[in-house]
C-alpha cells in the first residue's frame, strides 16, 4: 500500500469538505473493493475519507410505499432488517447472497453501487425496482445512475447518502454465483410494480454492466409465470465471457435465473 492519510468523517458535510481539501481523495465505506486495490498498489489516493461511521448514513427505514436504505448500511444489516424483509423480501434476500459473511459485515450498498462492478448484485435490484439514488447534491433515478462498467453518474466528490426503493407488488431475485469470487455470473431481479409495470434487470451478464431485459419483461407482462419465459431467447452477443462462464452460458443463465426469480416472487 502507498502512503495515504486516513480521515474518519462524522458527517456528510465534513466528508465533502475533506474531499474538497484533498488532492486525490477516495471515499471509503466498507472497503471491499478499495482496500484490496490499494494493497495491490493499483490505487494510491492521497487521502482516504471513511464515511462508514457517519450515523446519518446507516439504517433501513420503511415509510409508506418506500423502503430507504442509507448508503453506509452493511449488507448483513439489510439481509436481517425486519423492515426490508417485510417491504421487499427479495431485496433482503439479495443482500444475504452478496460475497460471504465477512464481506456482508463490511460491504455497503453505497459502496457497491458507487463502484458499479458489472457483476455486483445491488445494481440489478436498483434498476428493476426503479430506485432513486440520493446523494449530498441530488436525486438520481437508477436508470440514469449506472453508466456502464465501473462508471456512474456520480460527480467528483459527490457522496451517495441513501437509496430509496418503491415497494413493488411482487419481486424476486435469483443468482448463479461466480465459483471463485461469489459475484454474480448472472443474477436477475424481477419486479412487478404496484401500477402493474414489469421490470427485469440482469447483472453479471452484460459487457456494459447491469441491464434491463426487455424480451423477458414483455413475456412477463403478458403472463407473470416462469413458463412465460420458456420461449424467450437471450442473444449471447454483448455478454461477458471468461473462464467461469461463456457468453452462451450467461445468456442461458439470464433466462433460467429470471424463471427462478419469478417463481420465488410468486
Amino acid at each position: 500500500m502507498y502512503q495515504t492519510t486516513y480521515h474518519r468523517a462524522s458527517s456528510v458535510d465534513e466528508a465533502a469538505s475533506l474531499f474538497a481539501k484533498s488532492s486525490e481523495a477516495k471515499f471509503l465505506a466498507g472497503g471491499q473493493t478499495l482496500l484490496p486495490v490499494m494493497k495491490q498498489r493499483l490505487a494510491g489516493p492521497s487521502d482516504v475519507i471513511d464515511v462508514a461511521k457517519i450515523k446519518d448514513m446507516i439504517g433501513v427505514e420503511a415509510s409508506g410505499d418506500t423502503l430507504t436504505i442509507k448508503a453506509a448500511t452493511p449488507h448483513y444489516d439489510v439481509a436481517t432488517s425486519d423492515a426490508a424483509k417485510k417491504a421487499i423480501p427479495a431485496l433482503a434476500y439479495l443482500a444475504s447472497l452478496i460475497g460471504d459473511p465477512a464481506v456482508r459485515y463490511r460491504g455497503t450498498i453505497g459502496g457497491s453501487i458507487a463502484n458499479n462492478d458489472p457483476a455486483a448484485d445491488y445494481p440489478a435490484a436498483l434498476l428493476a425496482l426503479d430506485a432513486t439514488v440520493k446523494t449530498n447534491k441530488r436525486s438520481i433515478a437508477a436508470a440514469d445512475f449506472f453508466k456502464g462498467l465501473f462508471t456512474t453518474a456520480l460527480e467528483d466528490g459527490e457522496i451517495i447518502t441513501a437509496v430509496s426503493f418503491p415497494v413493488p407488488a411482487k419481486a424476486g431475485y435469483s443468482k448463479m454465483p461466480h465459483p471463485a469470487s461469489r459475484f454474480a455470473l448472472a443474477g436477475v431481479f424481477v419486479a412487478q410494480t404496484k401500477s402493474g409495470e414489469v421490470r427485469v434487470a440482469a447483472t453479471g451478464a452484460s459487457q456494459n454492466g447491469v441491464m434491463r431485459v426487455p424480451a423477458i419483461e414483455a413475456a412477463l407482462k403478458t403472463n407473470w409465470s416462469p413458463a412465460a419465459i420458456d420461449s424467450v431467447s437471450i442473444p449471447a452477443s454483448g455478454l461477458l465471457a471468461d473462464i467461469h462462464g461463456s457468453a452462451e452460458y450467461r445468456a442461458n443463465l439470464v433466462k433460467v435465473m429470471a424463471q427462478r426469480a419469478v417463481a420465488a416472487a410468486g
Binding site: 460471504d100 465459483p179 471463485a180 469470487s181 473462464i243 467461469h244
Partner: peptide, 25 residues
C-alpha cells in the same frame, strides 16, 4: 469441480488471485 490454474496462449496467468482461482469453501 473448482480449481484450475490457467494461462493464456502467451503464458500470462489468468488465475493469479482468489477472485479467479476457485478454492473450495
Amino acid at each position: 469441480l473448482l480449481e484450475h490454474a490457467i494461462y493464456d496462449a502467451n503464458g500470462q496467468p489468468v488465475t493469479a488471485s482468489f477472485m479467479d482461482y476457485a478454492m473450495p469453501r
